[in-house]
């Protein structure tokens, strides 16, 4: 089964995935119209910041067993085995935040949502673009990512690519070429700046 795979070393922190995610989970599905919707659609993927101010697309790993599911008091969090996705039933959710204590990745947020009962704050997280998948479309965050920091592929394919990359890098005489020399240059200088601020 294909799934969204995160390649953090490629993230440039543009946050386009967040916009696309929020729009994909809006009523209108259009970024331009979504901004005036009530409740305001919010992203399920969160571009966090690393210690060197590098971007990091943080989204639900759909763990199995899922700690949030085990911690959920009203049993609102469940796994749909067919799509290998952990989902939250907004009607059952009581907004107790027990899942906030449980999620080791910090990807659950609490707010009103287009699919929740109006006016009710609920726990919200990535649903692997359940709705788009039914329309045979790939998840919105992947579609928006121009640098392949988010890919939609089988775990096996991604693993093979990564294994090949590592194998090549350890070959005798192999040169470790930077993924993008310009991005590496920028990050090196940024790191100097940050280390000067935080000695």
């Amino acid at each position: 089964m294909k799934k969204v795979i995160v390649h953090p070393e490629r993230c440039v922190g543009c946050m386009q995935c967040m916009l696309a995610c929020a729009a994909a989970h809006s009523k209108t599905k259009s970024l331009f119209l979504a901004v005036s919707e009530k409740p305001q659609p919010k992203p399920r993927v969160h571009v966090g910041v690393g210690l060197y101010e590098e971007g990091f697309p943080n989204r639900c790993r759909h763990c199995n067993p899922a700690p949030c599911q085990l911690a959920c008091l009203p049993g609102a969090i469940f796994r749909d085995n067919e799509i290998d996705t952990v989902l939250i039933d907004p009607d059952k959710c009581i907004n107790c935040a027990s899942c906030a204590m449980a999620c080791p990745f910090g990807v659950i947020r609490y707010h009103e949502d287009a699919v929740a009962p109006p006016g009710k704050t609920v726990a919200v997280k990535c649903d692997n673009c359940y709705e788009r998948r039914q329309q045979k479309r790939i998840p919105a965050c992947v579609e928006a990512c121009m640098v392949a920091a988010l890919t939609f592929e089988t775990e096996a394919a991604a693993m093979k690519r990564k294994t090949d990359e590592i194998s090549r890098s350890v070959s005798t005489g192999a040169e470790t070429a930077a993924l993008s020399p310009g991005f590496e240059l920028l990050n090196t200088l940024k790191k100097v700046q940050i280390e000067m601020r935080n000695p």
């Binding site: 953090p8 969160h46 966090g48 910041v49 690393g50 210690l51 060197y52 590098e54 990091f56 943080n58 080791p104 990745f105 910090g106």
Partner: peptide
Amino acid sequence: RFNFKQVMT
């Protein structure tokens, strides 16, 4: 702003 990435780095 603390998040998972900061410990992962």
